[in-house]
Nucleic acid binder design. Structure first.
Length: 269
DNA sequence: CAATCGTCCTGCGGGC
DNA sequence: TGCCCGCAGGACGATT
């Protein structure tokens, strides 16, 4: 599922491929968006950004596409010369198509359609993003800041809190489990029970597993691929969808916050 | 305030 | 062999 590292990877590649290109045609298969895209073209993309798990595509007319990939959202960028031979890759589960003046296309696809693709004015965009917590890879996210944030949540379970987008942005079920294993913390622990050493370790582990994810261009389990193929981070996972931890201990799997959660009863205290 | 549940959606794998 | 069931889960709103 696309979390911070997956979205970061896609955004970096979109920047390379679409900034400055003139869009001459847009099709979005969503009854809420369709009326809004009348008379939108032509326009150019002037920037692509990430906030939490959202992709923000900035248009040169002051409008924005705010995209959430849900669990199965993908982008394909196809050069004009390859449109025919690559049909099988970009046709299934098609939700949106941008056609550029050089004949290349950008498509958005999603098997389960649990995501969103909205055209917004700046005010709406800021409203939609206003409730998100801090970015874990920002320089402003310091250990001191993290400790201060945790004091507001002392009775909540640590795993559920890491996945709370209003608490901290961009962490989902994969990287929450990976960070907790790396930090040696049981996902069911209450925030208030973490001592100073554990808090520091968790802070460092969050940053480490997210950076690992970006370095490997995301985790390709189920549908996720980036614009140039599959990610590699699934090769480096420690507990997510695993039977044993790297130490060889049998993992436990329990539902937490309605999500499957694997953890090691030996390594994670 | 915390936690859970239902909702959206569809492919796939397990079980019989 | 084929079919049905349930699981996978990000975000959000309602409920406990």
């Amino acid at each position: 599922m696309p979390e911070l590292p997956e979205v970061e990877t896609i955004v970096a590649q979109l920047k390379q491929k679409i900034i400055g290109n003139k869009v001459i045609k847009v099709e979005v298969l969503d009854s809420l968006v369709e009326p809004k895209i009348k008379d939108l073209t032509p326009f150019r993309f002037i920037d692509v950004r990430r906030r939490a798990k959202y992709i923000i595509m900035c248009l040169d007319n002051g409008k924005y596409f705010l995209v959430h990939l849900g669990m199965t959202g993908l982008f394909y960028f196809v050069e004009k010369a390859q449109l025919e031979q690559k049909k099988k890759c970009y046709q299934p589960h098609l939700l949106a198509t941008f056609t550029f003046n050089d004949g290349s296309i950008l498509t958005h696809n999603s098997v389960r359609k649990i995501g969103s693709f909205r055209l917004m004015e700046e005010k709406e965009l800021n409203m939609a993003l206003s409730k998100l917590g801090p970015e874990p890879l920002d320089s402003e996210f310091t250990l001191g800041k993290f400790k201060e944030m945790l004091t507001q949540k002392s009775r909540a379970k640590v795993k559920v809190t890491l996945m709370d987008q209003s608490f901290i942005a961009g962490i989902g079920n994969i990287y929450a489990q990976e960070a907790l294993y790396h930090a040696g913390i049981n996902p069911e622990r209450k925030i208030g029970s973490l001592n100073s050493t554990e808090t520091k370790k968790l802070y460092e582990s969050i940053i480490l597993v997210l950076k690992e994810g970006i370095k490997h261009k995301g985790t390709s389990v189920d549908e996720y691929i980036h614009l140039e193929g599959a990610g590699e981070n699934q090769k480096y996972l420690r507990v997510y969808r695993k039977k044993k931890c790297p130490q060889g201990h049998l993992l436990k799997k329990e539902a937490m916050g309605g999500r499957g959660t694997s953890y090691c009863p030996v390594c994670q205290k």
